[in-house]
Amino acid sequence: MAEQPRAWRLVLEHIERDLLDARLGPGDRLPSERDLSADLGVGRSSVREALRVLEVMGLIRTSTGSGPQAGAIVVATPSGGMSALLRLQVAAQGFPIDDVVQTRLVLEGAVVAALAAAPDADLAEAHRVLHAMDADGLAPEEFLALDARLHLALAEASGNTVIAAMMAGLRTAIESYVLAGSARIADWEAMSARLRAEHRAIVDAIVGGEADAALALVTAHISGYYDHVLGDRPTD
């Protein structure tokens, strides 16, 4: 006999169907707990559990009281929830470093190509981080935290919210492997100077609208560090 789904899952599936069928959309308010409970034949505690799951996932926001902002409302851009879920998956599953690097190559290649084709892209944050990385006396962990922030800033500037959310979710895993690798670098000053130069070359290629060059540079940058500190780059 097939196991019956838990009551709160029935609520999730009902709301998912309404979203897929466009009966609900960004900015819409969900039915009240009472109505969902009556319509689906589940207890209000199960409805509340489902709503908590949806809120953690970033798909809704909830507010008590009355008025247009009260209740559970579908969020237009749930990228924060997606990033949080990916961070949890990274922490729980321990994704292989090879897979993280391969994913970076795919995502960041798309990012720099898109930015190079968008002359009006806002790169102010990327330039701010580049400047911060020029500070004297940065410890490897400080420098590499800025490094991760630079790559995330480029993803955010691309305007692709899914890629930006995925990069944000992978940020912990990226910082972890690049920092672990830094302990194997005999001359950190030389490596940090090399990384600065590579970052600036990538941004310069983007600003110059050179998509092919930007793609080649970011691929060499990500793969080169991986090869240097952690062995062979994953095959394409």
Rank of each mutant, 00 (worst) to 15 (best):
Ser176His: 14
Val47His: 02
Leu123Met: 15
Val56Ala: 07
Arg194Thr: 12
His151Ala: 14
Asp21Tyr: 11
Ala197Gln: 11
Arg17Thr: 13
Asp236Ile: 08
Gly58Leu: 13
Ala91Asn: 00
Asp236Glu: 10
Glu108His: 10
Met191Cys: 12
Asp120Arg: 12
Ala145Thr: 09
Gly80Ser: 12
His151Arg: 15
Gly80Tyr: 13
Ala38Leu: 14
Gly71Ala: 06
Arg233Gln: 05
Glu13Tyr: 05
Ala197Lys: 08
Pro119His: 03
Gly27Ser: 15
Leu230Thr: 10
Leu86Glu: 07
Asp232Gly: 15
Leu170Trp: 09
His131Ser: 02
Ile206Ser: 02
Ala50Cys: 10
Asp18Ser: 00
Leu20Glu: 12
Ala118Ser: 14
Ala148Cys: 15
Tyr225Lys: 02
Ala205Asp: 09
Leu115Gly: 02
Ala76Met: 08
Leu12Tyr: 09
Val106Glu: 05
Ser37His: 08
Ala126Val: 12
Pro140Leu: 03
Leu59Ala: 02
Arg23Gln: 15
Met191Leu: 14
Gln89Trp: 15
Arg196Leu: 13
Glu16His: 05
Ala211Asn: 05
Val74Met: 02
Gly224Glu: 01
Ala173Val: 11
Glu16Arg: 08
Leu36Met: 10
Thr103Cys: 09
Leu51Cys: 06
Glu198Val: 04
Pro96Thr: 04
Val111Thr: 11
Thr219Gly: 06
Asp18Met: 03
Leu85Ser: 04
Leu24Gln: 11
Leu36Lys: 04
Ala201Glu: 04
Val203Tyr: 13
Ala220Asp: 14
Leu107Ser: 07
Pro96Glu: 06
Leu40Thr: 10
Val100Cys: 13
Gly169Asn: 07
Asp35Asn: 07
Ala193Pro: 00
Arg104Tyr: 05
Arg171Lys: 10
His14Gln: 10
Ile206Phe: 09
Ile15Asn: 03
Val112Glu: 03
Asp21Ile: 05
Gly181Leu: 05
Gln102Cys: 04
Ile185Glu: 12
Pro5Gly: 08
Arg200Thr: 01
Ala216Pro: 05
Asp98Pro: 04
Leu54Phe: 00
Thr235Gly: 11
Val229Arg: 05
Asp232Lys: 15
Gly159Val: 06
Leu144Pro: 01
Gly67Ser: 04
Thr103Ile: 07
Gln93Asn: 14
Leu138Cys: 05
Ala197Trp: 02
Asp232Val: 14
Arg17Pro: 04
Ala145Val: 05
Pro31Gln: 15
Ala70Phe: 03
Gly67Glu: 02
Tyr177Met: 10
Leu130Lys: 03
Ser37Tyr: 09
His14Phe: 12
Phe95Val: 14
Met166Lys: 09
Arg87Pro: 06
Gly43Gln: 13
Ala91Trp: 00
Gly137Met: 06
Leu130Cys: 00
Ala164Lys: 12
Arg34Lys: 15
Glu198Ala: 05
Pro68Leu: 03
Ala183Asn: 06
Gln89Gly: 13
Val112Thr: 07
Gly58Val: 11
Glu13His: 09
Phe143Gly: 00
Ala205Val: 10
His131Leu: 04
Arg171Tyr: 00
Trp8Cys: 01
Glu33Pro: 14
Ala124Trp: 01
Leu130Gln: 01
Asp28Thr: 07
Ile15Phe: 02
Ile73Tyr: 00
Asp236Ser: 13
Ala113Asn: 09
Asp204Gly: 01
Ile73Thr: 00
Asp28Asn: 12
Arg52Glu: 15
Leu146Glu: 01
